[in-house]
């Protein structure tokens, strides 16, 4: 479970987060929806303890990230944007390295890496260096890294950006599997179809604030619109920065 309460963060002259509060529950896929510059990435970085909030707290399974960063992060898997691959390592080395960083002993880390690579159908590229990988292959590697240590909470920053249909499907199926296994999945996006197709709960963000929370259907009802896209525009009050 990821819980964010009264988060505020100022970066330069911009109030990136403005008294932001929400929860993402276990066994659910929660979407963080907002236009470009709404503060989605800032919010996720704060949850990871990379940014320090001026105000408010972020908790993972009840552990305060600011106070116990290592313990809190052990319950987290991150699919970052950009991916941050080590181009000279192979996916197998890359994934088992991060498994070790999450406290798995070496032998176990290797086994976990092998199983997650198999699960993502990456056996054919598992021992090639990441340099020269396609966007889809990179995405899979980053995804394997995020779930290799089987964290209870998984955060994905703009996961579908730049992916083709096949890769998007792989990702979508995996997120559904994770949800079925009782994980808490939180992802940020500005792509309506993704959010509508996947999310149990949608948190609509604009200018660092939560504008609305609810299932896609609830949001449509609330605004009286037929599609999530129209509901979204109604909620944030402008159509600026929305990818169809």
């Amino acid at each position: 479970m990821i819980k964010v309460a009264n988060l505020s963060k100022r970066i330069g002259d911009v109030q990136a987060l403005n008294d932001l509060s929400f929860e993402a529950l276990d066994g659910q896929i929660t979407g963080l929806l907002g236009p470009n510059g709404a503060g989605k990435t800032t919010c996720l970085r704060t949850v990871f303890g990379l940014l320090k909030p001026d105000n408010g707290t972020a908790e993972i399974d009840g552990i305060d990230v600011a106070k116990f960063p290592v313990e809190a992060k052990q319950q987290l898997g991150l699919f970052p944007d950009p991916f941050g691959l080590y181009e000279r390592l192979t996916p197998r080395e890359y994934v088992s390295y991060f498994a070790e960083l999450n406290g798995l002993p070496r032998a176990q880390a290797k086994a976990a890496a092998a199983s997650v690579l198999n699960k993502l159908h990456m056996d054919d590229i598992a021992d090639r260096k990441c340099k020269g990988f396609s966007q889809g292959q990179r995405m899979k590697t980053a995804l394997a890294q995020a779930i290799v240590h089987e964290p209870t909470n998984i955060i994905l920053d703009e996961p579908t950006r730049g992916l083709d249909v096949m890769s998007t499907r792989v990702l979508r199926d995996l997120l559904k599997d994770l949800k079925a296994a009782g994980h808490c999945v939180l992802f940020s996006s500005h792509v309506m179809q993704e959010v509508a197709a996947l999310c149990d709960r949608v948190i609509v963000m604009a200018q660092g604030k939560v504008v609305a929370i609810g299932s896609p259907e609830q949001l449509c009802q609330q605004t009286g619109k037929a599609s999530l896209e129209d509901a979204f525009i109604e909620l944030i009050g402008t159509d600026e920065g929305i990818a169809a």
């Binding site: 809190a72 080590y86 960083l101």
Partner: peptide
């Protein structure tokens, strides 16, 4: 520059 520093720091290592 390769964006892996933020990822590394997001993991449970001090």
């Amino acid at each position: 520059e390769r964006n892996s520093l933020a990822l590394l720091l997001s993991h449970p290592v001090s």
